[in-house]
Design a protein around this nucleic acid. Structure first.
Length: 684
RNA sequence: GCCCGGGUAGCUCAGUCGGCAGAGCAGCUCACUCGUAAUGAGCAGGUCAGGGGUUCGAGUCCCCUCUCGGGCUCCA
């Protein structure tokens, strides 16, 4: 029996009577919790084996919660390192943190060796042996000197210890997690020969691990610095149960099925002809039709929102980009110049200098402001070859770009209205879950910090008015402007950065823009850069992945397929298609050269929202058979006029909530007024 | 740009030890004229990414280049 017992307060408000000095393991036993992996005490996580503090509430961290998964993943990463060091004697190991959905570990293999895909199964087999041996994780704390001695043969570990020992500012968060704090280093041992620098906590034993999978190998620079060693990274995933692991692997398969590059090929939307060069897409008729619908929607609503259309060329004298600062700051991201008649030209990486010239083409009055210039402008950026990715990262793309020139006093209202407009537009595409980042002045920036602060305040005000959840991304603004970056989540929870709103402090000055004020004096306008889709190309890719290719009817390149049962019904099918076309529906007749079943299958695979089957009964009765995408079962004998009504309604672009000057309580207004996302199921 | 792995018919892929370049789908032709996710038969389709090398002989082995994919770095 323990000499005395204490009442231990739990975070949920209850308490448990335990012997003094009891550990997290004993607490878990007392509570009947069998999946605890750590203890949360005073905001930090500690090992289960540590005696619980008698003051302050504590809480068990269970395997399935976010922090618990991180512990599992971190522990699994240790086992990965242990396995690799077993299999490659002389290997160096660097860092191995938990990450979203998994973990990785970086190594330098002896003799400059590299991992191969087939190594993953060997390593995984060795990891499973270690798990089978139920090795305890044991924590120890050492002095800096002891740590350096322990890791004498491990240059990366020594560098971490030395870097942190050198004092604050010499470390970063990822390295801190590796277990060096102040003048102590913590290490974890498991098994006879393995010890790693680590802050912890870890599971009590490797036996608690097992639902993991190694996924891929990759190169990764030491400390993320491309001038330093490139290490060999192994990525894996780990979960609290086989079921959770299987669910994650299924999510990966789901993402694979939604890959816009695959869908683009299967639906014949676009391609990347090698003859054009990397990162330069061509849109096929169906893909171009989708773009047309997106762009028309954008143009129409911009006009309604008080924008004016402009059009500008793809190239300009290099001197323009000297003036704008692009060649000074971002020449590396621009295509090299070309010489024409002794003058250097560049492809434009952004539209703003051109729009500035439109503004400056004549004297401007305060009466004209805010002046909102909109263009679907195609820009060219020299992206490094390794970063290109489908339509989401290309070398030539079209921005739905606008520049708003306004008087200083108009900035706040303009930004707030703009943010509402952005949310309404994106909402119309069926995307509703947004998060924002306010990116503030970076280290490398131009302009007066006072102006920066004012611009940042205006952006923050717009966010507050809109009620959008946001976080501050300190120091992540563009060199010339603070900005709001808008992110959205797609149907399977992935986050995509889309819109950007920037308050430019530089261009009006560089181009010496002005307007005549009410006071007959010259004033400098503010300039807002903004793109809603960001890139039309990239936004199309996001839509394709979000909808798995089954776009809402109004965006579908073909909205209805009319299938005659036999050749005798083809004339009627043509009439049906003409009726639909008269209602503005994009309809196609697919003649009876193949079996009806095969044509239905083709239409389904092409994700056509409405399939109309017409046979003898329909010819006689003026009806159609309706097979709607996502519908429960096909209908027979629907009157043509009724079917046309339903399809025409489905094919109509959604309404857009006008920008709201005064959003309602809790700032949900921009979303509540937006029509519910069209599931693209054609249910009419 | 860097690391790793790929590139064989429009697509997905097979091709053993270096010994005649294949399949399914798609395409075309013919027959079938069909009531809600694949009718049948036939035909055609290849500079095996490109170039160089080794070899009696290269899709296969070696080198270079291009390109795609996964990462890293970058992303005004």
């Amino acid at each position: 029996m323990h000499p005395h017992e204490v009442d231990l307060a739990l975070t949920d408000g209850s308490s448990v009577r335990l012997p003094a000095g009891a550990t997290g393991e004993e607490l878990a036993a007392a509570l009947g919790v069998d999946d605890a992996v750590a203890v949360r005490s005073g905001g930090t996580l500690v090992d289960l084996q540590v005696p619980l503090p008698e003051t302050g509430p504590v809480e068990l961290v269970r395997a399935g919660e976010p922090d618990g998964r991180s512990v599992l993943r971190h522990s699994t990463a240790h086992v990965l390192a242990q396995a690799v060091l077993d299999l490659w004697p002389g290997a160096s190991f660097a860092i191995g943190p938990p990450i979203e959905d998994g973990f990785y570990y970086d190594f330098l293999l002896p003799g400059g060796a590299h991992f191969r895909e087939e190594d993953l199964s060997r390593i995984e087999a060795r990891m499973r042996e270690i798990v089978g041996e139920a090795q305890p994780f044991e924590r120890a704390e050492l002095s800096i000197e002891e740590g350096l001695e322990l890791f004498e043969a491990q240059p990366f570990k020594r560098e971490i210890i030395e870097g942190v020992a050198a004092g604050p500012g010499a470390s970063d968060a990822a390295l801190e997690a590796e277990g060096v704090e102040g003048q102590r280093v913590s290490v974890y041992r498991n098994g006879p020969g393995f010890v790693d620098l680590c802050r912890g906590p870890h599971v009590p034993s490797t036996a608690r691990l097992g639902s993991f999978r190694l996924l891929r190998t990759a190169g990764a620079y030491w400390r993320g610095d491309e001038r330093r060693d490139q290490l060999q990274r192994i990525y894996g995933t780990a979960w609290e149960s086989e079921e959770a692991l299987a669910a994650h692997l299924e999510r990966l398969a789901e993402a694979e099925r939604r890959d816009h590059r695959r869908i683009g090929r299967e639906l014949d939307l676009f391609s990347f002809p090698p003859e054009l060069g990397p990162g330069l897409p061509v849109y096929h008729p169906k893909g171009a039709r989708i773009r047309y619908e997106m762009e028309e929607f954008a143009r129409r609503h911009h006009l309604e929102a008080g924008y004016e259309l402009v059009a500008t060329p793809h190239a300009a004298r290099s001197s323009l980009f000297e003036t704008s600062g692009h060649l000074g700051w971002y020449a590396e991201s621009m295509f090299p110049g070309m010489e024409v008649e002794g003058v250097s030209y560049h492809l434009k990486p952004m539209n703003c200098p051109m729009h500035v010239l439109v503004y400056r083409s004549r004297a401007r009055s305060y009466r004209e402001l805010p002046l909102r210039l909109f263009e679907l402008g195609t820009v060219y950026r020299f992206e490094r070859s390794g970063v290109l990715h489908g339509l989401t990262r290309v070398r030539g793309f079209t921005q739905d770009d606008a520049h708003i020139f306004c008087a200083p006093g108009q900035l706040g209202a303009e930004l707030a209205a703009l943010l509402g407009f952005v949310l309404a537009m994106l909402g119309a595409f069926g995307l509703g879950e947004f998060e924002a980042e306010l990116a503030t002045r970076p280290e490398k920036s131009v302009g007066d910090p006072v102006d920066w602060a004012a611009a940042e305040a205006a952006l923050r005000h717009a966010l507050d008015v809109t009620g959008l959840p946001y976080r501050i991304a300190a120091g992540e603004g563009a060199f010339y402007a603070p900005k709001i970056d808008l992110h959205l989540r797609d149907a399977i929870g992935r986050r995509w950065q889309v819109s950007t709103l920037q308050v430019d402090l530089q261009l009006p000055q560089l181009f010496d823009l002005d307007f005549t004020g009410e006071d007959n004096g010259r004033h400098r306008p503010y300039m807002i850069h903004r793109a809603l889709f960001g890139s039309v190309d990239r936004f199309l890719a996001i839509l394709l992945e979000h909808y798995e290719g089954a776009l809402p009817c109004w965006l579908s390149p073909v909205q209805a397929a009319v299938l005659p049962v036999g050749a005798a019904h083809e004339a009627y099918a043509t009439d049906v298609a003409a009726t639909l076309a008269a209602r503005g529906v994009r309809a196609e007749v697919r003649a009876a050269s193949e079996s009806l079943g095969a044509r239905i299958r083709d239409a389904k695979l092409a994700k056509i929202p409405w399939i109309l089957v017409v046979g003898a009964e329909d010819v006689a009765g003026g009806s159609v058979g309706v097979n709607a995408r996502g519908g429960a079962r096909p209908e027979r004998g629907v009157a043509l006029s009724e079917a046309a009504d339903r399809i025409a309604a489905d094919a109509t672009p959604p309404p857009l909530l006008p920008p709201q000057p005064a959003p309602g309580p809790a700032g949900r207004a921009p979303r509540t007024g937006v029509p519910a996302p069209r599931a693209g199921d054609g249910a009419g």
